[in-house]
Design a binder for these strands. Sequence first.
RNA 1: CGGGGAGUAGCGCAGUUUGGUAGCGCACCUGCUUUGGGAGCAGGGGGUCGGGGGUUCAAGUCCCCCCUCCCCGACCA
Length: 566
Amino acid sequence: MRMTRLAFKTQREAPADAEAVSHQLLVRAGYIRRLASGVYSFLPLGFRVLTKLSEIVRAELDAGGAQELLLPALHPIEMWQQTGRLDTMSDVLMTVEAKGGTFVLGPTHEEAVIATITPDLESYRDLPVTVYQIQTKFRDEARPRFGLMRTREFIMADAYSFDASAVGMKDSYTQMYKACVNIFDRLGLPYVPVEADSGAIGGDVNHEFMVPSPIGEDHFAQCGGCGYAANIEAAKRGEARRIPSDSPVLEMKTHATPGAASIKDVVEFFRSEGYEIDESSVMKTLAFKDVRDDVVLILVPGDREVRVPSGLTPLSDADFDSNSFLFKGFMGPMGMQDQGVRVLADYSIYERQSWFTGANLEDHHVSNAVLGRDFTVDEVGSFAIVSEGDPCPNCGNVLSLVRSAEVGHTFQLGLAYSNKIPSATFKAEDGTDQKFWMGCYGIGVSRLPAAIAEHFHDENGLRWPKSVAPYQLEILTITPARSPEVVAFADGVYEDLTSLGIEVLYDDRDLGPGVKFADADLIGIPTIVTIGQRGLANGVVEVKDRFSGERTEVGVPDLVSYLSKL
RNA sequence: CGGGGAGUAGCGCAGUUUGGUAGCGCACCUGCUUUGGGAGCAGGGGGUCGGGGGUUCAAGUCCCCCCUCCCCGACCA
C-alpha cells in the first residue's frame, strides 16, 4: 500500500481523553478513532490488525475441531427471559425496539447459539459439536475505559461446545483450552491461565487467560513457588502461621460504643479511650443467608474484605428485622451457634490472640474476645479476598498480586443453560431425552490490540509482533521529490516484494525525512527499509528492526532476497 | 449510581476573573526555499464557542435547565 493512497493521518498530540499509552498511540498512529464513549472505529491500519488477530483465532479454533458460524446480534428478548439473564445481566443489556418486538443486542451468545444449533443436534450420534463465531457484541458498560480495553461495542470470538456427557464436555474443554493456548502463543504476549470465578455466565470449572498489564482491570494472585494462579475473585489463601499465645490475655469486656457502626468508628472510639487498636485488630462480622435462608456469619479482620462464597447472599434490612439477635454494625461471633447460626472464619483469625468485635447489642462492642474461650467457629478457611503476601493454598509460599487484562475466558457450563431451555435436548442411546453438557470459550479480539500495544510499545511508538502487524515491512524514501533514482529504485523494490506476496507499506509521501522516520516508528511496522540518495550512492540500503532498533546495511543487489527471508 | 474535572476549528490549548469584531500551535490549501530524525518565509481556508432558555444596547464570558466526555470509586461476559 502506497501511503499517498492510504486513508490515514498521524497526529503529533494524543486526544486529551486518552489516558492509556496504548490508547494514545493507537489514535496518534491512525489505527482507531472514537465515535462515542466506548465506541471505536477501526481505520484501515487498525482493521488490518484486527483481521490478523481474527485469522489467528480462526485458524486455531478450526484446528481444535470447531466450526465457524455467524449468529445475529439481535436476539428476541424472550430468549433472555427464558434463561433469566434479562434480569441477571440487566446492567449491561442494550435493547432495540423494532417492528417485530423488542430485541437484546447480544452481549454474549449462549441463548442464540442454543436456539440456532440444537435443532441439528437431535441424537447422541450428532455429538460432540463445537461451533464458534467472531463478531460484534454489545455491553452497556457503566464505565468504558482505556480505549479498546473496555468498550460498549466490541468484537469477540466465542466458541460453544455441546456434549452428551460430563466426560465429553471435559474433553471438549481441554481441546478449546489448548486452542486458546496456541492462539496466545502465536501473539507472543506473556499470558497466564488462572483459575477464575464464573460470574453471570454460570458454570463450574473455568479459567481466564490473563496478560499482566498496567491497564488491566483485573488482578490475579500468583504463587512464586508452585505456580498456583487465580483471579482475585476466586483466589484462596492457605492457613496462616498461628501466633503463640504466651502473653497474658485479659478478660473480655463490653464497652458502650454509641453510634460506632463501622470498623473506622470502632477504631476511633477505642483509640480515644486509650486502647492500642487498628483496623486489623477488629473482627469484622458480616451476615449472609444461604440457599435455605439460614444465617451464616463470616469473620475477617477489619482491614480485609470478605470473598463471598457462592450460594451466600448478604442479608437485607428486612432479614435483619426478622433476626432480632443481629444488630447491624454491632455483630460479633459470641453465642451465635446458640441462635442456629453457622460461623465461618478466615484463616487470619489465627493471626491474633484477641479481638475487638461487636457485642451483639445495639451500640456496644467488646475487647479481648478470644477464639475458643469467648466464642467458637464452625469452620476456619479462606474467606477473605487474598492480599499481597498471603500464603499460597497449595504450597504455603507467598502470593503476589498481579494487575492484568483478561483476554480469554473458558468455562465448563455443564447443564446450566440446558436446564433453563427445556427444548434443548437430544436422544440418548437408551432412547431418553438428555440435556446438553456445554462449554463456552471466549477471546476478546478487539481488546487484543490494546493489550499488545500496551505490552510492546516503546517511547517512539508502537511495535507490532510480525504475527499481527498490519504490514510486514515498510519502505521509506528520503527526498523522493528531488531524486528520481530513489523513487525508481524504491518503486521497483515495492513491486518485487509485493509480487512475492509480502505485505508492504510504502511511504512514498513527499515529506521531510524527520517526519517520515518519526511516523514509521509511531506506526510500528516490524521492519523499516530506508532508501535514500546517500545509501544508493554507496550501493546500500538501511534495514531497521523496529523491535531491537538494530540497523543493517544491505547491498542493493541482495536487498529483495534479504527482505523476503526476514 | 457517588465524588472530582472538562466541553472554544480535525488534534492540543489560550481567551471566561473585569461582557465590547473568536485567537495560538499542529494539521489543511497556494507559492518559493529547504531536505538522512517531527524545516523556513509569505499568503489562505476552516467555528452553532456542547444544546436550550434568560439578563443586557451587546454574551465564549453573567444566570437557570439539559446533554456529552474524562478521572477515582461502585459494578463487570
